[in-house]
């Protein structure tokens, strides 16, 4: 029998309730999704079963990380609406925010990469066979470096929802994929930004893999009318906090 949304939704609420019970019994709050989150079926064969091995070595190479500079981005990379001859279809938006470490310090001069579907919910990827139109004026890839305040900014269009094959009638809520670097390789973060009020959020096992309600809320951007530009674009704000070993929070930021 094919899996239905009802089957997946039942698994989602079971996982959330089990988590809440564990926290009530004294388990730590879990900010990140468990790697073995069965409602997202692709995780089943792709998570380690052994516990992670802890490396406490203060000389570990992973406590430093790669650096990026002005040669790694071009001036237009942050504007996904200007990478082609014409304008893309869709609702023009700006997405901005600060990248901070857990000590609240700005993460400066680091690379932020994004990718997303077009306004119809189609990726410019050969393996995306969703029956929605490609947009010749939209690729959906952007990059920028954070400034001295840790700020990033992108101009893009609001991506559409799209179907996927986790279960029957599975639809991903609109989202923008983000990839971020901190000052340590251990701070590396790949995540997804969602839009406030999206009716698909409760149904999506990828969003719901974050079983902590407050943590999951941190994946949703805020609509900020002050960022909207008259007769041009709507503004969203999304701040990002990079996790990382305690050792990196107490070092001098760069």
């Amino acid at each position: 029998m094919p899996l239905t949304q009802a089957d997946i939704s039942a698994e989602i609420s079971q996982a959330r309730e089990a988590y809440l019970k564990a926290v009530a019994a004294g388990d730590p709050v879990r900010d990140h999704p468990a790697r073995d989150y069965a409602p997202y079926r692709s995780s089943v064969l792709r998570h380690p079963k052994q516990p992670l091995v802890s490396v406490g070595d203060p000389e570990a190479v992973e406590l430093s990380g790669p650096v990026f500079g002005v040669t790694d981005v071009t001036a237009l990379d942050h504007d996904l609406t200007r990478q082609h001859v014409g304008e893309p279809h869709g609702e023009r938006i700006t997405v901005t925010g600060r990248v901070l470490d857990r000590a609240g310090r700005p993460v400066r001069g680091q690379l932020v990469e994004i990718w997303q579907a077009n306004a119809s919910g189609r990726y410019a990827h050969q393996r995306d066979d969703h029956a929605a139109p490609l947009d010749p004026n939209f690729t959906g890839v952007g990059r920028c470096l954070t400034n001295d305040d840790g700020e990033y900014q992108f101009v893009t269009i609001k991506p559409g929802a799209y179907p996927w094959r986790n279960h029957v009638n599975a639809w991903r809520p609109a989202h923008i994929h983000f990839s971020l670097f901190g000052t340590a390789f251990t701070q590396r973060l790949v995540t997804q930004m969602y839009f406030p009020g999206d009716p698909l959020l409760p149904y999506d096992p990828i969003v719901q893999s974050v079983t902590d309600d407050a943590a999951r809320q941190r994946l949703v951007a805020t609509y900020d009318h002050g960022l909207s530009r008259p007769e041009w674009s709507l503004g969203y704000r999304w701040d990002i906090v990079l996790d990382g070993p305690a050792a990196t929070w107490i070092e001098e930021g760069r």
């Binding site: 990140h32 857990r102 990839s179 990828i206 994946l219």
Partner: peptide, 20 residues
């Protein structure tokens, strides 16, 4: 100060035209 981190999410299947 200790801020709560932004949760991770899967890279998904379609990063191929963006990250490599």
């Amino acid at each position: 100060m200790s801020l709560s981190p932004t949760p991770s999410q899967t890279v998904g299947p379609f990063y191929g035209y963006a990250l490599p």
